[in-house]
Amino acid sequence: MDSPEAFCVTGLREWIALPDLGVVGLRAKIDTGASTSALHATEISEFERDGERWVRFNAHIGTLVQRRHRCEAPIVTRKTIKSSNGQAQARYVIRTLLALGERAWPVEFTLTCRKTMRYRVLLGSKALVDGRLLVNPAHAYLLNKPQILTSPGAQ
C-alpha cells in the first residue's frame, strides 16, 4: 500500500490550469462518482494535421465574465459517455496536462457542452488516481491556484 505522504488532499472544488492549451483559472468540481473528466467546449470541429486526427474547440474561462479561448489538441479517441441523467453522448477525448496546486500530470478529458453546469470542468476518478489525490468533501479550494501563464490567444 502507498504511504499517505505520496498523496495530496484536495477539496470538493479546486482551481486548475491546462497549460498545454494555454488555459488558466478554471474552477473544477472533483467528482469521484464520474470515471472520466470533462471539459466545457463549444464549436468543436475535427481536422487532420500531419496525417493525424485533431480537434479544434473553444474552451470557456471565467465565471462571471466568460472568455473563449481557441484550443487545438490531438484526438485520443471518441467515447460514448452516459451522463448522470442517463443520456448517452458521443464525445471526443483529448489528453492534456492538468496543473492542480503544485502538481501537473496528463489527464484525458471528454469535450462536451457544460454551459448549464455550474463548473466548466469535472475531474473524474481516473484523473484523481493518476494525480494521487485524496478528496476531502468537507472543504473546497485547499490548494493554491496554479501559476501558469496563458498564451496570447485568449479572447
Rank of each mutant, 00 (worst) to 15 (best):
G25Y: 13
R120K: 13
H60R: 05
S84D: 02
R118Y: 08
L100D: 07
G51N: 05
R70L: 11
F47P: 03
G153M: 07
R67Y: 14
I81V: 15
E5W: 10
L18I: 11
V65I: 08
R95D: 00
L122T: 04
S125N: 11
V23Y: 00
E14V: 09
R68G: 09
V135D: 01
I75T: 08
Y141K: 03
N144V: 07
R103G: 03
L149K: 11
S37T: 04
V65Y: 09
L21W: 05
E5K: 12
R67W: 11
E48T: 15
L39V: 10
F109E: 04
V24Q: 09
T150C: 11
M117G: 05
S151E: 10
S37G: 06
A154C: 14
P152T: 11
I61N: 06
A59K: 06
Y92F: 14
R118Q: 15
R95Y: 00
R91V: 04
G62M: 02
E5G: 00
V55C: 02
L97M: 14
R49N: 10
F109N: 08
P137Q: 11
T42D: 07
M1Q: 12
S3D: 15
G22R: 06
R118G: 13
L134R: 13
L122M: 14
L64R: 14
L134Y: 03
G51V: 06
I75D: 01
K145I: 05
D31W: 04
A59C: 12
G22T: 07
I61L: 11
D20K: 14
K79E: 02
Q147P: 00
R70F: 10
G124M: 02
P146M: 06
T150Q: 13
K29W: 02
L26D: 07
I75E: 01
P4K: 12
G101I: 04
N58H: 14
I16D: 04
T77N: 08
R56D: 10
G51K: 07
V121Q: 03
C71T: 05
V23S: 00
I30D: 01
G124D: 04
L39H: 06
R67M: 15
Q89C: 02
T32L: 10
M117H: 02
S125P: 00
L100F: 05
R70K: 14
E5L: 12
I75C: 04
T116W: 01
L64E: 15
S3M: 12
L128S: 05
L142G: 09
R27A: 04
R70Y: 06
S151R: 10
L26C: 02
H40W: 10
I44C: 04
P74T: 01
V135P: 05
L142H: 09
G124H: 01
D50W: 01
S125A: 13
A73Q: 10
V65E: 14
N136Q: 14
T77K: 11
F7N: 10
L100M: 07
I61C: 05
D2W: 14
E5D: 13
T10F: 01
I75N: 02
W105S: 05
G62P: 09
Q66R: 11
G22H: 02
S125V: 08
R56Q: 12
A88R: 12
L100R: 00
A140Y: 11
R13L: 15
G22L: 08
D20I: 10
G25V: 03
G22C: 03
L142P: 04
F7A: 12
S45M: 10
T110P: 07
Q147D: 07
E48H: 10
A28I: 01
A41T: 08
T150I: 06
P137A: 15
T63G: 03
D130R: 13
H40P: 08
A38T: 12
E43Y: 09
